[in-house]
Nucleic acid binder design. Sequence first.
DNA 1: CCAGAATAGATGTATATACATCTATATTGC
DNA 2: GCAATATAGATGTATATACATCTATTCTGG
Lengths: 138, 138
Amino acid sequence: MCGSFRRTARALTQMYERALRPSGLRATQLTILQVLVRAGEVSQGRLGEMLAMDSTSLTRTLAIMRRAGWIAERRGEDRRERRVRLSSAGEAKLRRALPAWERVQARLRGKLGQREWGSLLKLTHHVTEIARTQGGLP
Amino acid sequence: MCGSFRRTARALTQMYERALRPSGLRATQLTILQVLVRAGEVSQGRLGEMLAMDSTSLTRTLAIMRRAGWIAERRGEDRRERRVRLSSAGEAKLRRALPAWERVQARLRGKLGQREWGSLLKLTHHVTEIARTQGGLP
DNA sequence: CCAGAATAGATGTATATACATCTATATTGC
DNA sequence: GCAATATAGATGTATATACATCTATTCTGG
């Protein structure tokens, strides 16, 4: 199952990133921008939880995005935290990238059909939750 | 959908690799060994197709596995090709790793249920095929 | 209040992965 | 048969990702 998901993730990433290439955004970066739109300002650790990604892996990705000016960071009240949020440049970047993103996504949804599309979103979420809780326990 | 698959793939990879850590195999490496058991000797390009992975990405992963002694390589009749196959050390490595892999997989299957498990395998395969054919076309 | 434990990220290191480009070989059109 | 073209991988470069370990900060028991 892990292999199946990894294979599909590779295939989808190639398809989506091909569509996104003109915008200069990678799949992970666009996902982070989208999350920040909905979540507002969050700590790096919280962002990692939302993405099921090791929070220290985000250190590098967020540094790239901060250098590009798409996000802004500041220290939290807890000074160990780094709190990130969308910058206006990031908002603009996302807005310009979304049409291509939505085109490729709509085409996939068309090929899959509404029923399978919905099933997949539900199932992937379910699997993520299971893996999240099982992963930690031996 | 791309983001969902990538998130789930990360979560699953963390879970599976945690179980595989004593064996020293990464998820991708175990997948390759399993594919080679079934496929016998294949070219690097063909292996890339089976995994939906860019064949030049395999250059590095296969080099690691060859150094570790898990696979053997030779030139094909077409001298541009590299044909890879499981070595006996790779077979042994896989055999020792499989129990842990099967335990984590069985636990996940139990949590998901047989019906969802089967749906997921079918759906991920379907999505891979769609992405594979759509990815190339504008 | 303070020493020890816990937590949030930063950093070092390794693998995974893609694409552009380069090289070696093969195929093809004439 | 050879020049032009196509193909299989190798290599350079960039991002993605995890974990172990380190540092700075916070929390907690006494």
